[in-house]
Protein backbone atom coordinates (compact mmCIF):
# COMPACT_ATOMS: atom_id res chain seq x y z
CA UNK A 1 0.00 0.00 0.00
CA UNK A 2 1.32 3.44 -0.85
CA UNK A 3 0.49 6.78 0.79
CA UNK A 4 -1.31 7.99 -2.29
CA UNK A 5 -3.69 5.08 -2.60
CA UNK A 6 -7.33 5.45 -1.65
CA UNK A 7 -10.60 3.99 -2.70
CA UNK A 8 -11.81 6.24 -5.49
CA UNK A 9 -15.34 4.83 -5.22
CA UNK A 10 -15.97 6.34 -1.80
CA UNK A 11 -15.34 10.05 -2.35
CA UNK A 12 -18.18 10.50 -4.79
CA UNK A 13 -20.61 9.98 -1.93
CA UNK A 14 -18.54 12.14 0.38
CA UNK A 15 -20.88 14.44 2.29
CA UNK A 16 -20.95 18.07 1.25
CA UNK A 17 -21.81 20.88 3.66
CA UNK A 18 -25.25 21.01 2.08
CA UNK A 19 -25.91 17.41 3.13
CA UNK A 20 -25.44 18.30 6.79
CA UNK A 21 -27.65 21.35 6.27
CA UNK A 22 -30.30 19.08 4.70
CA UNK A 23 -30.30 17.01 7.90
CA UNK A 24 -31.76 20.06 9.64
CA UNK A 25 -34.88 19.97 7.42
CA UNK A 26 -34.56 23.55 6.14
CA UNK A 27 -38.12 23.67 4.76
CA UNK A 28 -39.60 22.81 8.14
CA UNK A 29 -37.20 25.32 9.65
CA UNK A 30 -38.82 28.08 7.58
CA UNK A 31 -42.08 27.50 9.44
CA UNK A 32 -40.27 27.34 12.78
CA UNK A 33 -38.38 30.59 12.13
CA UNK A 34 -41.48 32.47 11.02
CA UNK A 35 -43.81 31.35 13.80
CA UNK A 36 -41.13 31.83 16.47
CA UNK A 37 -40.44 35.32 15.13
CA UNK A 38 -44.14 36.19 15.25
CA UNK A 39 -44.41 34.84 18.82
CA UNK A 40 -41.45 36.97 19.83
CA UNK A 41 -42.59 40.15 18.10
CA UNK A 42 -46.25 39.82 19.11
CA UNK A 43 -45.25 39.82 22.77
CA UNK A 44 -45.87 43.12 24.56
CA UNK A 45 -42.20 43.42 25.53
CA UNK A 46 -39.51 45.13 23.46
CA UNK A 47 -36.55 42.85 22.79
CA UNK A 48 -33.19 44.10 21.58
CA UNK A 49 -33.01 43.34 17.83
CA UNK A 50 -29.79 41.35 18.13
CA UNK A 51 -31.14 39.29 21.02
CA UNK A 52 -34.35 38.70 19.03
CA UNK A 53 -32.28 37.58 16.02
CA UNK A 54 -30.23 35.22 18.17
CA UNK A 55 -33.33 33.84 19.92
CA UNK A 56 -34.98 32.97 16.59
CA UNK A 57 -31.69 31.53 15.32
CA UNK A 58 -31.32 29.28 18.37
CA UNK A 59 -34.94 28.14 18.13
CA UNK A 60 -34.34 27.33 14.46
CA UNK A 61 -31.13 25.45 15.27
CA UNK A 62 -32.99 23.50 17.98
CA UNK A 63 -35.73 22.65 15.47
CA UNK A 64 -33.07 21.64 12.94
CA UNK A 65 -31.32 19.47 15.52
CA UNK A 66 -34.55 17.59 16.18
CA UNK A 67 -34.85 17.12 12.40
CA UNK A 68 -31.37 15.55 12.31
CA UNK A 69 -32.29 13.24 15.21
CA UNK A 70 -35.52 12.35 13.40
CA UNK A 71 -33.52 11.43 10.26
CA UNK A 72 -31.10 9.39 12.38
CA UNK A 73 -33.91 7.32 13.90
CA UNK A 74 -36.10 7.09 10.80
CA UNK A 75 -33.41 6.30 8.22
CA UNK A 76 -34.80 2.78 7.77
CA UNK A 77 -38.29 3.92 6.76
CA UNK A 78 -36.97 7.01 4.90
CA UNK A 79 -35.24 4.60 2.53
CA UNK A 80 -38.60 2.97 1.72
CA UNK A 81 -40.50 6.15 0.86
CA UNK A 82 -40.02 7.91 -2.46
CA UNK A 83 -40.50 11.31 -0.80
CA UNK A 84 -37.63 10.73 1.64
CA UNK A 85 -35.35 8.23 -0.13
CA UNK A 86 -32.99 10.98 -1.31
CA UNK A 87 -32.32 12.29 2.18
CA UNK A 88 -28.60 12.27 3.11
CA UNK A 89 -28.66 9.07 5.22
CA UNK A 90 -30.69 6.74 2.93
CA UNK A 91 -28.77 8.15 -0.04
CA UNK A 92 -25.54 7.03 1.66
CA UNK A 93 -23.92 10.45 1.88
CA UNK A 94 -24.07 10.84 5.67
CA UNK A 95 -23.62 8.06 8.25
CA UNK A 96 -26.36 7.57 10.85
CA UNK A 97 -23.86 8.18 13.65
CA UNK A 98 -22.91 11.53 12.14
CA UNK A 99 -26.57 12.61 12.12
CA UNK A 100 -26.94 11.51 15.74
CA UNK A 101 -23.82 13.40 16.78
CA UNK A 102 -24.85 16.53 14.90
CA UNK A 103 -28.38 16.40 16.33
CA UNK A 104 -27.25 15.97 19.91
CA UNK A 105 -24.55 18.62 19.67
CA UNK A 106 -26.83 21.20 18.07
CA UNK A 107 -29.62 20.42 20.58
CA UNK A 108 -27.30 21.14 23.50
CA UNK A 109 -25.91 24.23 21.81
CA UNK A 110 -29.33 25.67 20.95
CA UNK A 111 -30.85 25.12 24.41
CA UNK A 112 -27.87 26.51 26.35
CA UNK A 113 -27.44 29.52 24.10
CA UNK A 114 -31.17 30.33 24.09
CA UNK A 115 -31.08 30.22 27.89
CA UNK A 116 -28.06 32.50 28.03
CA UNK A 117 -29.42 34.90 25.41
CA UNK A 118 -32.97 35.18 26.76
CA UNK A 119 -34.22 33.17 29.73
CA UNK A 120 -34.33 29.58 31.00
CA UNK A 121 -38.09 29.17 30.56
CA UNK A 122 -37.65 29.59 26.80
CA UNK A 123 -34.67 27.23 26.90
CA UNK A 124 -36.65 24.62 28.85
CA UNK A 125 -39.51 24.87 26.33
CA UNK A 126 -37.05 24.38 23.47
CA UNK A 127 -35.53 21.35 25.21
CA UNK A 128 -39.01 19.92 25.76
CA UNK A 129 -39.90 20.53 22.10
CA UNK A 130 -36.83 18.61 20.93
CA UNK A 131 -37.62 15.81 23.39
CA UNK A 132 -41.25 15.72 22.28
CA UNK A 133 -40.43 15.59 18.57
CA UNK A 134 -37.65 13.03 18.84
CA UNK A 135 -38.79 10.73 21.64
CA UNK A 136 -42.58 11.12 21.85
CA UNK A 137 -43.32 11.59 18.14
CA UNK A 138 -40.46 9.95 16.21
CA UNK A 139 -39.60 7.04 18.49
CA UNK A 140 -43.02 6.30 19.92
CA UNK A 141 -46.14 7.69 18.23
CA UNK A 142 -45.11 7.72 14.59
CA UNK A 143 -44.83 3.94 14.29
CA UNK A 144 -47.49 2.95 16.79
CA UNK A 145 -50.69 4.98 16.34
CA UNK A 146 -52.66 6.71 13.58
CA UNK A 147 -52.97 9.63 16.00
CA UNK A 148 -49.23 10.19 15.46
CA UNK A 149 -49.49 13.54 13.74
CA UNK A 150 -52.33 14.79 15.93
CA UNK A 151 -50.30 14.51 19.13
CA UNK A 152 -46.91 14.83 17.45
CA UNK A 153 -48.08 18.07 15.88
CA UNK A 154 -47.54 19.70 19.25
CA UNK A 155 -43.80 19.69 18.55
CA UNK A 156 -44.29 21.96 15.55
CA UNK A 157 -46.66 24.18 17.50
CA UNK A 158 -44.22 25.14 20.25
CA UNK A 159 -41.99 27.66 18.37
CA UNK A 160 -44.36 30.69 18.70
CA UNK A 161 -44.74 29.86 22.39
CA UNK A 162 -40.96 29.70 22.77
CA UNK A 163 -40.65 33.03 20.95
CA UNK A 164 -43.22 34.57 23.30
CA UNK A 165 -41.47 33.10 26.35
CA UNK A 166 -38.10 34.38 25.09
CA UNK A 167 -39.51 37.91 25.04
CA UNK A 168 -41.63 37.90 28.18
CA UNK A 169 -40.19 35.16 30.39
CA UNK A 170 -43.69 33.73 30.80
CA UNK A 171 -46.44 31.89 28.90
CA UNK A 172 -49.52 34.00 28.26
CA UNK A 173 -52.91 33.08 26.83
CA UNK A 174 -51.79 34.62 23.53
CA UNK A 175 -48.90 32.15 23.34
CA UNK A 176 -51.31 29.29 24.04
CA UNK A 177 -53.61 30.50 21.23
CA UNK A 178 -50.72 30.60 18.74
CA UNK A 179 -49.75 27.11 19.88
CA UNK A 180 -53.34 25.91 19.44
CA UNK A 181 -53.59 27.43 15.97
CA UNK A 182 -50.56 25.47 14.70
CA UNK A 183 -51.57 22.36 16.66
CA UNK A 184 -55.06 22.23 15.11
CA UNK A 185 -53.72 23.08 11.66
CA UNK A 186 -51.28 20.15 11.56
CA UNK A 187 -53.73 17.19 11.17
CA UNK A 188 -55.65 18.43 8.09
CA UNK A 189 -52.36 19.59 6.56
CA UNK A 190 -50.70 16.18 6.91
CA UNK A 191 -53.77 14.08 6.18
CA UNK A 192 -54.22 15.91 2.87
CA UNK A 193 -50.61 15.00 2.10
CA UNK A 194 -51.22 11.39 3.17
CA UNK A 195 -54.15 11.15 0.74
CA UNK A 196 -51.92 11.75 -2.27
CA UNK A 197 -48.70 10.02 -1.12
CA UNK A 198 -50.49 6.95 0.27
CA UNK A 199 -48.18 4.47 -1.40
CA UNK A 200 -45.21 5.86 0.50
CA UNK A 201 -46.76 5.30 3.91
CA UNK A 202 -48.02 1.87 2.86
CA UNK A 203 -44.50 0.86 1.82
CA UNK A 204 -42.99 2.05 5.08
CA UNK A 205 -45.85 0.60 7.18
CA UNK A 206 -46.25 3.92 8.98
CA UNK A 207 -49.73 3.76 10.57
CA UNK A 208 -51.12 6.90 9.00
CA UNK A 209 -54.87 7.30 9.27
CA UNK A 210 -55.19 6.51 5.55
CA UNK A 211 -53.51 3.13 6.14
CA UNK A 212 -55.21 2.09 9.39
CA UNK A 213 -58.74 3.49 9.03
CA UNK A 214 -59.06 4.03 5.31
CA UNK A 215 -59.34 7.02 3.08
CA UNK A 216 -63.05 7.69 3.71
CA UNK A 217 -62.40 8.12 7.45
CA UNK A 218 -59.42 10.36 6.68
CA UNK A 219 -61.61 12.63 4.55
CA UNK A 220 -64.13 12.89 7.40
CA UNK A 221 -61.34 13.65 9.87
CA UNK A 222 -60.01 16.43 7.63
CA UNK A 223 -63.45 18.07 7.58
CA UNK A 224 -63.95 17.79 11.36
CA UNK A 225 -60.50 19.16 12.23
CA UNK A 226 -60.84 21.96 9.68
CA UNK A 227 -64.17 23.02 11.23
CA UNK A 228 -62.63 23.03 14.71
CA UNK A 229 -59.62 24.94 13.39
CA UNK A 230 -61.84 27.53 11.72
CA UNK A 231 -63.68 28.19 14.99
CA UNK A 232 -60.41 28.58 16.85
CA UNK A 233 -58.77 30.73 14.17
CA UNK A 234 -61.69 33.14 13.84
CA UNK A 235 -62.19 33.23 17.62
CA UNK A 236 -58.55 34.26 18.05
CA UNK A 237 -59.42 37.41 16.12
CA UNK A 238 -61.30 38.68 19.19
CA UNK A 239 -58.36 38.24 21.58
CA UNK A 240 -55.36 40.45 22.34
CA UNK A 241 -53.34 39.16 19.37
CA UNK A 242 -56.26 39.62 16.96
CA UNK A 243 -57.71 42.71 15.34
CA UNK A 244 -59.35 43.89 12.10
CA UNK A 245 -56.54 42.75 9.77
CA UNK A 246 -56.28 39.35 11.42
CA UNK A 247 -60.03 38.92 11.43
CA UNK A 248 -60.31 39.75 7.73
CA UNK A 249 -57.53 37.29 6.86
CA UNK A 250 -59.02 34.60 9.11
CA UNK A 251 -62.52 34.96 7.67
CA UNK A 252 -61.37 34.71 4.06
CA UNK A 253 -58.85 31.91 4.54
CA UNK A 254 -61.06 29.82 6.80
CA UNK A 255 -63.92 30.08 4.31
CA UNK A 256 -61.56 28.84 1.57
CA UNK A 257 -60.11 26.15 3.83
CA UNK A 258 -63.55 24.92 4.86
CA UNK A 259 -64.67 24.84 1.25
CA UNK A 260 -61.61 22.74 0.37
CA UNK A 261 -62.29 20.37 3.28
CA UNK A 262 -65.93 19.93 2.17
CA UNK A 263 -64.74 19.20 -1.38
CA UNK A 264 -62.32 16.57 -0.05
CA UNK A 265 -65.07 15.06 2.12
CA UNK A 266 -67.53 14.83 -0.79
CA UNK A 267 -65.08 13.13 -3.15
CA UNK A 268 -64.60 9.43 -3.56
CA UNK A 269 -61.44 7.67 -4.64
CA UNK A 270 -62.52 7.29 -8.25
CA UNK A 271 -62.95 11.04 -8.62
CA UNK A 272 -59.70 11.72 -6.75
CA UNK A 273 -57.66 9.36 -8.90
CA UNK A 274 -59.43 10.70 -11.99
CA UNK A 275 -57.81 14.12 -11.59
CA UNK A 276 -54.65 12.85 -9.84
CA UNK A 277 -55.73 14.23 -6.44
CA UNK A 278 -55.93 17.80 -7.70
CA UNK A 279 -58.31 18.90 -4.92
CA UNK A 280 -56.18 17.30 -2.18
CA UNK A 281 -53.00 18.85 -3.57
CA UNK A 282 -54.68 22.26 -3.81
CA UNK A 283 -55.88 21.94 -0.20
CA UNK A 284 -52.34 21.03 0.90
CA UNK A 285 -50.88 24.10 -0.81
CA UNK A 286 -53.62 26.29 0.65
CA UNK A 287 -52.78 24.95 4.11
CA UNK A 288 -49.24 26.34 3.79
CA UNK A 289 -50.56 29.76 2.81
CA UNK A 290 -53.17 29.48 5.59
CA UNK A 291 -50.63 29.23 8.40
CA UNK A 292 -48.22 31.82 7.04
CA UNK A 293 -51.05 34.29 6.43
CA UNK A 294 -52.51 33.86 9.93
CA UNK A 295 -49.16 34.39 11.63
CA UNK A 296 -48.41 37.22 9.21
CA UNK A 297 -51.66 38.88 10.25
CA UNK A 298 -50.76 38.47 13.95
CA UNK A 299 -47.47 40.21 13.14
CA UNK A 300 -49.29 43.05 11.37
CA UNK A 301 -51.60 43.48 14.36
CA UNK A 302 -48.61 43.61 16.71
CA UNK A 303 -46.88 46.20 14.53
CA UNK A 304 -50.08 48.26 14.25
CA UNK A 305 -50.52 48.10 18.02
CA UNK A 306 -46.98 49.38 18.60
CA UNK A 307 -47.43 52.17 16.08
CA UNK A 308 -50.76 53.08 17.66
CA UNK A 309 -52.74 52.51 14.47
CA UNK A 310 -55.64 51.04 16.48
Amino acid sequence: MSDTSFDSRTYETDAQFGDYYALLKPRVMTLVVFTALVGLLAAPVAVHPFVAFCAVLFIAVGGGASGALNMWYDSDIDALMRRTAKRPIPAGRVAREEALGLGLALSGFAVVFLGLATNWLAAALLAFTIFFYVVVYTMWLKRSTPQNIVIGGAAGAFPPMIGWAAATGSIGIEAVLMFALTFMWTPPHFWALALFVRQDYDNATVPMLTVTHGRRVTRVHILVYTALLAALAVGTGFTAIGGPVYLAVALVLNALFLRGAVQIWRRDEVAAEGDNFAVEKKFFKLSLLYLFAHFGAILVEAAAGRLGAW
Binding site: F17, G18, V51, L57, L116
Partner: peptide, 28 residues
Protein backbone atom coordinates in the same frame (compact mmCIF):
# COMPACT_ATOMS: atom_id res chain seq x y z
CA UNK B 1 -7.55 15.63 -6.45
CA UNK B 2 -11.29 15.81 -6.97
CA UNK B 3 -11.60 14.65 -3.37
CA UNK B 4 -9.89 17.83 -2.12
CA UNK B 5 -12.06 20.04 -4.29
CA UNK B 6 -15.22 18.42 -2.95
CA UNK B 7 -14.07 18.77 0.61
CA UNK B 8 -13.16 22.42 0.17
CA UNK B 9 -16.85 23.37 0.18
CA UNK B 10 -17.37 21.49 3.43
CA UNK B 11 -14.34 23.14 5.03
CA UNK B 12 -15.50 26.59 3.98
CA UNK B 13 -18.96 25.86 5.40
CA UNK B 14 -17.55 24.77 8.74
CA UNK B 15 -15.24 27.81 8.79
CA UNK B 16 -18.10 30.21 8.11
CA UNK B 17 -20.24 28.52 10.80
CA UNK B 18 -17.46 28.96 13.35
CA UNK B 19 -17.00 32.59 12.30
CA UNK B 20 -20.75 33.14 12.72
CA UNK B 21 -20.58 31.59 16.20
CA UNK B 22 -17.82 34.04 17.18
CA UNK B 23 -19.86 36.99 15.89
CA UNK B 24 -22.94 35.79 17.80
CA UNK B 25 -21.10 35.28 21.09
CA UNK B 26 -19.35 38.64 20.73
CA UNK B 27 -22.56 40.42 19.76
CA UNK B 28 -24.55 38.90 22.61
Amino acid sequence: HELHRRRRGRNIGVGLSLAALIVIVLGL
